Simulated scan of single mutants.
Amino acid sequence: MSKAAQTRQFIIERSAPLFNKKGIEATAMSDIMAVTKLSKGSLYVHFKDKEQLAQAVVDYNLQLLDKKVSAAISKVPTAKGKLLAFIDILTNVMYPPVEGGCPMINFGMEADDTNPAINKQILTAIERAQKTIVNIIERGTESGEFSSDKSPREFATIMFAMIEGGVVMSRVAGNNNKMKIIVKYLKAMIDEQLK
């Protein structure tokens, strides 16, 4: 990796938690300068503006989340185990897999009406997460672990919405109490899918 590419990656990695915590609009170039210890001119050598950096940061945070979810589900052999791992990695909101919380929620809520490019990145990430759930269920159905009388796509939508809704409720409350209820019901729904 070239020196310029290394510096660009350094800026993204140092800025990622900042953007994820404060939001795109509330993060100032001076904040980025403070966490990177780089001058404004140095930042603009690597990114034409804050918007370009924000898109790179959103992509980085989403990739980081994907890697952690993939690592968690790859450790277990069964479809049920993979779904439980998916739930477990995302539902301890006091210790989220990405510093600052779920980037899909954080950036999605900010960008839905204001930033079409980032909104598209978030939509793609949401669809990818749901596709992961669908694939797990389909493999579980093919192997005979799950019954085939439920729609994997519908289940994935419900599961994902419950997790993300629980993340919001728990982050606002500052505890995992609501999430524990959601996890209990999700696990019961998964058990209903078993043959």
Rank of each mutant, 00 (worst) to 15 (best):
E154Q: 05
I181T: 08
P77N: 07
K195I: 13
L18T: 01
S147C: 15
K184Q: 15
D149W: 02
N177C: 01
S148T: 09
I126P: 04
Q130T: 09
N20Y: 11
L186H: 07
I24F: 09
S42W: 03
S143F: 10
P77Y: 07
A56S: 07
A56F: 01
Q55R: 13
F160A: 05
R139H: 11
L65E: 09
I24E: 04
S39Q: 10
D31V: 04
L53C: 11
N176P: 09
T114G: 12
L64W: 01
A117P: 07
F160M: 03
V168A: 08
I182G: 03
K3S: 10
A16H: 05
S147E: 08
N20M: 00
S147P: 01
T7G: 07
Q9F: 07
K120V: 06
A173F: 01
D112T: 14
K80G: 08
I11Q: 09
S170K: 01
Q121P: 02
V58D: 08
I126T: 12
A16K: 00
F10L: 00
V93N: 10
K80V: 11
V168Q: 13
R8E: 00
K131S: 15
I181W: 11
L38A: 04
K150Q: 14
S147L: 04
Y95A: 14
L38E: 02
N106D: 06
A56N: 13
I89Y: 12
L65K: 05
I118T: 11
S2R: 12
L64M: 05
V98Q: 02
Q193M: 14
K178I: 14
Q55P: 00
L62K: 07
I87G: 06
K150F: 09
M179Y: 08
I137N: 04
N20E: 05
K120F: 08
K131A: 15
L84R: 14
I182Y: 01
R128S: 05
F47D: 02
G23P: 07
D191P: 03
E192N: 15
Q193K: 11
S39N: 04
D112H: 15
Y185S: 13
T27K: 02
M169A: 15
E13W: 02
F10W: 07
V57A: 10
K82L: 06
E110Q: 14
K180D: 12
E145K: 07
A111T: 06
D49I: 03
E138H: 11
L43R: 02
G174Y: 01
K150N: 13
L194Y: 01
E13C: 11
T114W: 07
K120Q: 15
T157N: 08
V57L: 05
I158M: 08
M169V: 15
S143Y: 09
N106H: 09
I11W: 00
K195R: 14
S74C: 13
I126V: 15
A173I: 00
L83P: 03
I133V: 10
K67C: 12
V98K: 00
M162N: 15
A34L: 06
G23V: 01
R8G: 00
E25C: 04
A125R: 06
K3R: 15
Y185N: 14
V76A: 05
A56C: 08
T78Q: 08
